[in-house]
Design a protein around this nucleic acid. Structure first.
Lengths: 136, 136
DNA sequence: ATCCTAGCTTGGACTTTGTCTAAGTCAACA
DNA sequence: TGTTGACTTAGACAAAGTCCAAGCTAGGAT
């Protein structure tokens, strides 16, 4: 994830302590925090960081393609630092925990031409649902 | 969709004018309204209907499996009356319009055992994204 | 036909999630 | 070390949804 900060600097970002903290909080595999969770963890390291800055920083990281936004349930969006490797999500219907998964096959090819309504398809996302070992 | 009201009555529902109006508003193919849109259209037919009742009624229809909730973008949820026929969604990145689609193949089978983290998988949803003929 | 009552509806207060703004601060270059 | 435009801040605001107490009513009971 220190790579992330370097990449952002290469794109002309000013490297502030707030942005560093947000990037650190987001680091890891299977990390899917909401903006408020990111804010809570960031405050633990940098007490004066504001909610607006967390939202701004997350939004900028998404625009740059460094972080992926995951809208799973119509509630708070989650932020996934693993945006550079294509993957899908598996969500526990019991506790809400999320894992990154890699299904086989070509999702886009699975949509017949007659089902495309003239759209130019650019991507597809899958959300698998089930019960995790703890909840089942 | 008049079927819907009959089915609901068979499940012990009291058939009120409010519920009838919500069901009528939701009727049709490729219908994916937000709760507020449902409310606006319901008010046109029954001016005193409240937002709370629309939310309650939609929530109940979802619980009964008669209507499907679609969370596409982290903003308002949309409600799809076509819940009794399995389908996925294709969304225009330009204007937000939504079509029901039917991809080929078995999504769940596409997830290898080694990628399931011990979960019992119960379902999978796909969201295709692209540009519709008007937007491209 | 009318009465009763559990279940339904209502308006408004409240919560959660996210956006916007004006004023102050500071990273990075010169 | 000074300058400046980009960044951050607190708080107001907005959108989407939930909750509650009080009143209303569909439909079975009488």
């Amino acid at each position: 994830m220190s790579d992330l900060l370097e990449r952002l600097r290469g794109r002309g970002w000013r490297l502030t302590s707030q942005r560093r903290v947000v990037a650190e909080v987001l680091d890891g595999d299977h990390v899917h925090l909401t903006a408020d969770e990111v804010h809570a963890r960031a405050v633990a390291r940098l007490p004066e960081i504001s909610r607006a800055t967390v939202y701004n920083t997350l939004g900028e990281m998404v625009s740059l393609g460094e972080v992926m936004e995951v809208a799973t349930d119509g509630r708070a969006k989650r932020y996934d630092p693993n945006a550079r490797h294509a993957h899908q999500h598996l969500i526990c219907s019991g506790c809400g925990s999320i894992r990154d998964v890699h299904p086989q096959g070509d999702l886009i090819a699975a949509l017949p031409a007659g089902e495309r309504f003239g759209f130019v398809i650019s991507g597809a996302e899958v959300t698998y649902r089930g019960l995790c070992p703890d909840c089942s």
